[in-house]
Simulated scan of single mutants.
Amino acid sequence: MRRPVRKAIFPVGGLGTRFLPATKAMPKEMLPVVDKPLIQYAVEEAKAAGIEEFIFVTGRGKAAIENHFDREYELEAVLQSRGKHKELEDLSSLLLEAGSVTYTRQQEPLGLGHAVWCARNLIGDEPFAVLLADDLVKSDQPCLKQMVEHYEDVGGHLVAVMDVPREHTNRYGILDVVEEKGPLARARTLIEKPDPAEAPSTLSIIGRYILDPSVFKELDKKQRGAGGEIQLTDALAKTLDDVTFHGLRFEGTRFDCGSKAGFLEATIAFALEREDLGVRMRDILNKYV
């Protein structure tokens, strides 16, 4: 029987430069889609997948994330005195079990691989998940939960994947696929941001991973890749002689909330499905489109 996926890493140390000046004093992961910050969507997805330990790899100026998942006694007292029971329930749902949350610092923004490496001692020798809050997935069954169910069958490294236009392959990690079976694609290797003319496929990794801890042996070497950063995909590729690698074509829609257009699209999509906002949102869209 495979070891369960109990721990998840949330790399939240990035600078968020594409959203300046909004992110000058606020972490990009705290940008709200409707009324819930991106990082909360990611944590809720992890909880739904059975994650028990939540590891945040932070940086300077990220205290708002820690505060968001902590108690706020003064605010709770005010809401209680005003009879705001629904709001109190919403705040209570944010809390994670005592002792299940850990924060560690990434002193320099040296890439996703480096951020994951910073959590190595907290992971130990067991499989783990990585969730990037920038990638927001809207689905009936949470994306990571879909992955956990398939991981029980295949083990090794498992990533969420989707097809992208060939001209965009130089923005993603791309799989070199050996065979496909249902929603699973087995890959011989993966290439970080290949030129469209050289990309082995258009099947790209999005920000959801379940990884074998053997990847830390490669990350320990701190080898720089594309953009001069320590790339997680490069380290994964070097483990594939010993570890199987699959991509899962997940069910749902992924929004690239690391871009302004993707963030706005996500806000519209989530607002349209809200009972309290859907009708009004359609009226607004009809007004401007």
Rank of each mutant, 00 (worst) to 15 (best):
P4F: 05
P4W: 01
V12P: 02
G14C: 01
L15C: 06
L15Q: 12
G16Q: 12
T17V: 06
R18M: 14
F19R: 09
K24C: 10
P27F: 02
P27L: 00
K28I: 13
L31Q: 04
V34Q: 13
I39T: 13
Q40Y: 14
A42D: 09
V43H: 11
E44C: 10
E44P: 12
E45V: 10
K47G: 03
I55T: 06
R60N: 00
K62A: 00
N67T: 08
D70M: 13
D70T: 14
R71Y: 06
L75W: 12
L75M: 08
E76T: 05
A77P: 05
L79D: 14
R82N: 11
G83Y: 07
H85A: 10
K86Y: 09
E89I: 05
L95E: 06
E97I: 12
S100L: 13
Q107M: 09
E108S: 12
E108R: 15
E108G: 04
E108H: 10
P109E: 03
P109N: 06
H114M: 15
H114K: 15
W117A: 05
A119E: 04
L122I: 06
I123H: 11
I123D: 11
I123R: 06
D125C: 07
V130A: 04
L132V: 08
D135S: 05
L136N: 07
Q141T: 13
P142V: 11
C143N: 12
K145I: 04
Q146K: 08
V148E: 10
H150P: 04
H150G: 04
A160C: 07
M162W: 00
P165C: 02
P165R: 02
R166L: 08
N170C: 07
G173Q: 03
L175I: 07
V177L: 12
V178C: 07
E179I: 09
K181T: 07
L184M: 04
L184D: 06
R186C: 00
R188T: 13
R188H: 08
R188Q: 12
T189Y: 10
T189P: 05
L190T: 03
K193T: 09
K193C: 14
P194Q: 03
D195N: 15
A197H: 15
E198T: 14
T202L: 01
G207M: 07
Y209I: 00
D212L: 06
P213S: 10
V215C: 04
F216C: 04
E218N: 04
E218M: 02
L219N: 00
K221D: 08
Q223A: 01
R224G: 02
G225I: 02
G228E: 08
E229F: 11
Q231Y: 06
Q231F: 01
T233A: 10
T233V: 15
K238S: 01
T244D: 15
F245S: 08
F245I: 09
H246V: 08
E251G: 00
E251M: 03
E251N: 03
G252L: 08
D256R: 13
C257A: 12
A261F: 15
G262H: 00
A266K: 05
T267S: 15
T267P: 09
I268Y: 11
L272N: 07
L277E: 12
G278S: 10
